[in-house]
Computed example of a mutant assay.
Amino acid sequence: MPFPAPLDHAEAVVFDAYGTLLDVHSAVQRHAAAIGPEAQRLSETWRQKQLEYSWVLSLCGRYARFWTLTERALDYALAQHPSVDRAIRADLLDAYRSLDAYPEVPGTLERLRRDGLRTAILSNGDTAMLDAAVSAAGLGDRLDAVLSVDPAGTFKTAPAAYDLAGRALGVAPERIAFLSSNRWDIAGAAAYGFAPVWVNRTGQPDEYPDLAPVRVIASLDGLLAR
């Protein structure tokens, strides 16, 4: 049976990791009772600053490991929310190394590979943190490649970061379906030439109308739906 669009011409499906396969807020959720009423806002600040630091460094032509940015972003978030006890810092960083996968992720990866498509991660995360996260989530045997932007020395949305997927998989960009929960990442993937699918898990309004996804889904369950 033919694949549904946008998989009908795809040879590989490449996923962003953080926020797409892995729940970035699960680290704080595990310790929400100890953190108190600021838990959700702390998590949101942590994530926003982590991304912001990657964008600023890329625009400056500089690079640092994503784990370093994750630590810096948490320090900023704790300073921004002083009611949270800083003693929780080490526990939160440990939890970030083993984020929860969204429930539909293992089954989706298995189905794609069973149907003959190659699967991979392309993430801003550095190699060590990706290895830890993939292992903790039990996804390693469901992926053909786990790719960090480290070799490119820049973060997505730089074309050099997206280059890594086709080079590692031996697949042309137009034959790669790229999934991300981050609308900015989808914009970058569209500009690069992937077939981008936006996993809009939280019902965010659309942005970047000139760099549109080929499909919008609420979770990975929608990828194979017709």
Results as ranks from 00 to 15, higher is better:
L211V: 00
D206T: 14
A212V: 14
A137L: 14
L147G: 07
P103N: 11
R97Y: 01
S58M: 05
P4R: 06
V214C: 07
R226C: 12
L22G: 09
P4W: 07
D126F: 02
A87R: 10
D100V: 02
W184N: 09
H25L: 09
E110N: 05
L109M: 13
I121H: 04
P103Q: 01
D75Y: 10
L74P: 08
L224Q: 12
S181I: 07
A145W: 01
A136V: 09
L99H: 01
R89N: 06
P106I: 15
R41A: 15
W55C: 07
R114W: 08
I88G: 05
I217K: 04
R118A: 15
I35S: 03
A120W: 08
V146W: 03
R142A: 15
F194Y: 08
Q50W: 06
A133Q: 13
F155I: 14
E174G: 13
G193P: 08
S26M: 10
V197H: 05
R62K: 07
N124H: 01
L78D: 09
V216K: 03
P103M: 07
W184I: 06
T45M: 07
A79L: 12
T157L: 09
A152H: 11
D221W: 01
D206L: 06
Y96H: 04
P205L: 10
T154D: 02
T20L: 03
L109D: 10
L92I: 14
E11G: 14
D144A: 04
L78F: 05
R47F: 13
A101G: 11
Y53I: 03
A137K: 04
A79Y: 02
D185A: 12
G61D: 02
W184L: 10
N200T: 14
G36C: 08
A79P: 02
K156M: 13
P4C: 11
L139T: 06
P205E: 05
V14S: 08
G166S: 07
T20M: 01
K49C: 10
P205R: 00
L69V: 10
S58A: 07
A168F: 06
G188N: 06
A212E: 11
A187T: 01
A87P: 02
S58D: 05
A27M: 03
G203P: 07
Y53D: 08
S54E: 11
A27I: 09
R142H: 15
P106S: 11
N200W: 08
S181V: 03
H9F: 12
P82M: 03
G138F: 02
D23I: 01
A191F: 00
P4Y: 06
F66H: 05
L51W: 03
D100R: 12
A17D: 10
P82Q: 08
L69E: 11
I186L: 06
D115Q: 09
P82D: 13
A79H: 05
G188H: 08
G153V: 07
Q29G: 12
S83R: 04
L109Q: 08
V149P: 05
L109A: 12
D23H: 05
Y18A: 15
A39F: 00
R47D: 02
P209L: 11
D75G: 12
G19H: 04
